[in-house]
Nucleic acid binder design. Structure first.
Lengths: 141, 141
DNA sequence: AGGATAATGTTTGTATGCTAATGAATATCT
DNA sequence: AGATATTCATTAGCATACAAACATTATCCT
């Protein structure tokens, strides 16, 4: 009898809306801390430095970007001189990507900022809360 | 001595990356459950139905979209016949928006789907976990 | 009253992000 | 081997998002 019928729809309480807002805030923090790279560009560069030479689509899978998206991101990284691409001799469909020396340097320079960005994004939470949040968020991916 | 130096950067652990992934999954669920409207379009329509007639920029603020973004969203809703726009007699800069009867009907029809979308997005978590997650996520917006 | 300021809506440009279609190359399977 | 299927990269089209610049209109302040 005390049961509230779900007749109301409060947008501000919905996961999708909250995810979008949290992401907006994170993007703003990222742009302020690391002006030269977008989050996706940094993610692609970071994964490429982590994994070493890899095909474009494989890099996309590693960073959760589809083929169309990763292409645009890689094109911009190549245009900036951070990533080099060579045709794969063994599989002529493939484009093998690798970070350039400038790309590796940019990644090394950006890493401290990346840590600050994560900290600042999670700053409204205590350490325990942040840990809980990340664990739950991981399961929603 | 057991302290791990933050020398490594694991992309898959970063908030930004996890937020992007969770959002991707949510968008896919949304598109499957509610094919006619995008999440932003639904958010704008829902807020407009909640709040009643309001200017375009004010609707943008209510839904966390900047002026350029809300314009595109509203244009598409108007093109679908879900939203009507009239010049404000009191303030000639303003465009007063209101849902059309079709817009109100679409909102009423979409609301059950919206609840399902939220449930499905949070399905990997228990109810208690989902509640915790939403509380923490709210503080990151 | 009148000049600085601010708000509203618009446009342009850049960057994600998805779907769908395409052509080329490789794998698979009978 | 040959037909079928899959993978890779690309392209086109649509929909967020944000920044920056703009003209128009309100408001504020002295």
């Amino acid at each position: 009898m005390d049961h509230t019928p779900p007749d109301d729809y409060q947008l501000d309480i919905q996961v999708g809306f909250l995810l979008r807002r949290a992401n907006q805030r994170h993007l703003a923090i990222f742009a302020a801390q690391l002006p030269g790279l977008t989050p996706t560009q940094f993610a692609a560069l970071a994964k490429l430095c982590e994994l070493g030479p890899i095909s474009q689509n494989a890099l996309g899978r590693a960073t959760s970007m589809d083929a169309a998206t990763i292409k645009g991101v890689v094109d911009r990284l190549r245009h900036k001189g951070l990533v080099a691409a060579l045709p794969d001799a063994a599989d002529r469909r493939r484009l093998v990507l690798a970070p350039t020396p400038e790309g590796k340097a940019a990644y090394a320079r950006a890493r401290p900022s990346a840590h600050r960005i994560t900290s600042e994004t999670l700053a409204p939470l205590t350490e325990d809360e942040a840990e809980t949040f990340l664990a739950l968020l991981t399961r929603l991916g």
